[in-house]
Amino acid sequence: MRRRKMAYGLAMAAMLCAAVSCAPDRAPTRAEQFAALPDWSGIWTSDATEIDISGYPAAGMGGMGLKLIGGKAPIKPELQAKMAAQLAAAMAADARRKAEGWGYPLMMEGVAPMQFLVTPEETLILNFYRDIRHVYTDGRQHLPEEDRWPVPWGDSMGHWEGDTLVIDTVSVQLDAIFHTLLLPLTEDAHFIERIRRTGPDHMEVEMRIEDPAVLSAPWVVNFSYHKAKGLDRLIHNVFENDRSVVEGDSLTIAPPKD
């Protein structure tokens, strides 16, 4: 472990000294470590889906247009009918389900405004549904397979390639209490993301998904974000006034409490 940390420290020193002015024979200072990281401050939201005051996209109520639910994945031919039925059932259930968040990978589509906190040791990614991803960039590895367990945000390790954060994620739980149910992948799915800021107000994500049990080939999905123009703070979601109630096969609005 000590050897790995030392190797990481030297690698970090070399990388940082390429970015800032310091002598390569010493470890970078804390300030130098932060100075070498990209600025991803602000609140970001999807370029593809801008939510209006109704809570639906301004373009209409015909769905969020989410790529990860869009059915364009290269699903194995022998599984397509099964997956279509599973997706339809999940969509129907979703209309009556009280989701606790979006979970991973759906949270990365950015429909729910999100924030990145970039530090030398980890990048925190969080959104308004209080989904939180810890992406460790200090050189640690995934837990051994026998010690891992699936969780809604997976287990994520990252490293920097210039100004691009490369994230390797495994052990993603596709749990019914999170929207991730809508993505028909297995818990053996492997995700590789490349995230970078492409301009003052834009970021891009390339997500590569490998799941040989379901996909006939790796599935590459791209997202892009812009800075949310009206948000100077993130207002998190809770269920303090949940008036959506089931009535027959659909939902309706419960009367106000007062």
């Binding site: 939201t45 939510i51 209006d52 005051i53 109704s54 809570g55 639906y56 405004p113 308004f128 949310a228 123009k229 009206g230 948000l231 703070r233 993130l234 207002i235 998190h236 979601n237 008036r243 609005i253 009367p255 106000p256």
Partner: peptide
């Protein structure tokens, strides 16, 4: 009438 809108974060982003 009960008129539903988005969560405060979406209203706030639209200037409400």
């Amino acid at each position: 009438w009960s008129l539903e809108m988005g969560a405060p974060v979406y209203l706030y982003n639209q200037g409400w």
